[in-house]
Design a binder for these strands. Structure first.
Lengths: 204, 204
DNA sequence: TTCTAAAATTGAGTCAATTCTGTTTTTGTG
DNA sequence: CACAAAAACAGAATTGACTCAATTTTAGAA
């Protein structure tokens, strides 16, 4: 069962993703035609739809790789957070934000976010929701860690706080990708300013 | 200049919006074909595109009416807030949330939100961003009012706090419309729980 | 009233995502 | 080594949003 067929399958998946990633970068998501992706990946249009339910799912596969890298990078911070609540939050969220435009352009993010709300039940829609939840969990883990370290008050509702912080960052990030001229430094500064209110409230 | 031509124009606008609203409700946004909207509004396809740049803008017009009603309803709360910070916030955000599904189905919200991130520079994209900003301003106005009334500490960064509260509510609302089975009561309860952290920090 | 320029309308045509159906390739069995 | 069933592929056909050139309607001047 896992002979030629499986190998060809994996290879075609890879070729499609590579072709799509290249074209999304060059021509933008809308500008990249399925026909062109198919040609570049040396498969037919029909085959692409055999591998992915729709164009959005191809982008979804790329976004998922990016977010998983970010999650990985975040683990280090949770394990060893700066000894100051404000800095700890800023460091973790900073990793998310600084990483975000490595492989994905703002236009790709806009499309990905749009698709995830438009089709929440498509494979990518569900995956994206899952990634958001995992990011939220990572922030919650950081808070729990800071509580253990005695830097954050024990009586704080950690899960609710984590979700609040994630939701705010995510919304700020959405506005950020919506404006091409918005800068990462400004985004981080705005989020720091908002979190300052929370930090003051939760620090021991 | 404001004779027959202007009257016909207004009338056609109305007919298009009514036809679209009916069909969006019946068949969903994707299910409603421009051709069908045109037929029901008794205009041609071309005419629709003379009035709206794209399908999303039609939905946008409907969403804008809804949000403007919500903003109106919110004015009363800002002018006369409950004498308790938690209740004041809950009342204002409650109005937003309870109103939200009056005219728009969750599917319509999903589409509207998706379009506003996908095409932030389209007429509707810009309008939607403007509406979000206005809602944020209203929350900020409430906070300022509560500060004036001596219920919220003066040294709190009101604008940042208002944005934080709005962003969190908005993100929670997005997740809410993404899940058809999600209930309004649960949404409100979750937001209250999150805001409790803030309320504790800002109350005099 | 008649005429002309500007504004608006029309619907057939274009374009790109997605679907569908017939064909080819792979697999496992006798 | 055949061969039948299952899986995957190909690309033509379909679909629906959006465009555009030709036609019709309105406004306002003579």
């Amino acid at each position: 069962m896992s002979g030629l067929r499986a190998r060809q399958k994996a290879d075609r998946h890879r070729r499609i993703i590579e072709a799509a990633a290249d074209l999304f970068r060059e021509a933008g998501y809308e500008g990249a035609k399925i026909e062109t992706i198919a040609a570049q990946a040396e498969v037919s249009v029909g085959t692409i739809y055999n591998y992915y339910q729709n164009k959005g799912d191809i982008l979804g596969a790329i976004v998922s790789m990016e977010v998983n890298e970010v999650l990985n990078a975040g683990r280090g911070v949770v394990a060893n957070p700066p000894a100051n609540v404000g800095d700890a939050l800023d460091t973790l969220l900073g990793i998310y934000i600084e990483h975000s435009l490595h492989y994905l352009s703002k236009e790709m993010w806009r499309q990905a976010m749009a698709i995830s709300t438009q089709l929440p039940d498509s494979p990518f829609g569900q995956a994206y929701t899952g990634l958001d939840r995992t990011l939220t969990e990572q922030i919650r883990a950081l808070i729990a860690r800071l509580q253990t370290l005695g830097l954050v008050r024990r009586d704080i509702d950690g899960p609710a706080l984590g979700e609040l912080i994630f939701n705010n960052m995510n919304m700020m990030f959405i506005e950020f990708v919506k404006r091409d001229e918005a800068r990462i430094a400004e985004l981080r500064a705005a989020i720091r300013r908002q979190n300052r209110i929370l930090v003051a409230a939760i620090t021991v």
